[in-house]
């Protein structure tokens, strides 16, 4: 099993994701350069956080045009798991691989703090090992995480169970006080209609080791690994 982490110019959580996947989960990890038009030999792709291309124009917009993205799109189309974290989520939105758009945080400021999110869907490779309603604690760190989708689209997303996470309080209640950025309906993460592409604003890689205060984020990566292993078992068996 080999996991790929895309490196855009301006990514700044790429090394963190590599660290967690390689040293905490003990997996084979390869860095995927934004300028390479192909991604071969990987079983999952992570688009890390940061400020790809400085987030100039709009967060994630320029990165969505980079040479690697057609390959990421094709990988996703063939059912490959793709995870976008924070800026990676913004890139997936701008690339049209996930529905919706990001606005500036309603508080108009960058927000870095731990939040709680509730698992709303277990149909993605990254959440299938979790329980619906499970509450996870992990940090956010973003200035544009105010999720928006216009009305008909929002209805579709919700009906087709594409909302993967919502901001909630420590008890799992989805309340406005727990919404750190003004996201519509407290949406913290969404997935593609097939479920194999997931984007979320919180940083699971920053909550993957006890010493950093939470291991809730690691469950997403462990879920992915278990999902990939079960699929391999099916293929082999």
């Amino acid at each position: 099993m080999r996991l790929g982490v895309v490196v855009f110019p301006g990514s700044n959580c790429d090394r963190d994701c590599v660290h967690v996947l390689r040293h905490v989960l003990g997996r084979d990890v390869v860095e995927l350069w934004h300028g390479d038009p192909a991604i071969e030999g990987v079983d999952a792709v992570v688009l890390p956080g940061g400020f790809a291309y400085g987030d100039y124009l709009r967060a994630g917009a320029v990165a969505a045009t980079s040479p690697i993205m057609p390959a990421v799109r094709a990988f996703a189309a063939s059912g490959g798991p793709v995870l976008g974290i924070c800026n990676g989520f913004q890139v997936l939105l701008e690339a049209g691989m996930l529905p919706g758009a990001m606005l500036r945080n309603h508080v108009l400021k960058f927000q870095c703090k731990p939040v709680h999110i509730r698992v709303e869907s277990t149909r993605t490779p990254f959440t299938h090992g979790l329980r619906e309603g499970q509450v996870l604690r992990m940090p956010i760190a973003h200035g544009e995480g105010n999720y928006f989708a216009p009305d008909p689209l929002l209805a579709t997303i919700q009906e087709s169970e594409q909302v993967a996470f919502r901001y909630c309080d420590a008890h799992g209640r989805v309340v406005s006080e727990a919404n750190p950025n003004g996201s519509l309906n407290n949406i913290a993460g969404v997935c593609s209609p097939q479920g194999n592409v997931l984007g979320l604003m919180p940083h699971p890689e920053r909550a993957s080791e006890e010493v950093l205060g939470s291991t809730d984020g690691r469950m997403l990566f462990e879920s992915l690994v278990a999902w990939l292993e079960s699929r391999r078992a099916v293929v082999v068996g």
Binding site: L57, R58, A61, T65, E94, G100, A101, L103, F148, A149, P150, L153
Partner: peptide, 8 residues
């Protein structure tokens, strides 16, 4: 396609 995001 690029300079604006038609959703918003």
């Amino acid at each position: 396609r690029f300079l604006a995001n038609p959703l918003i």
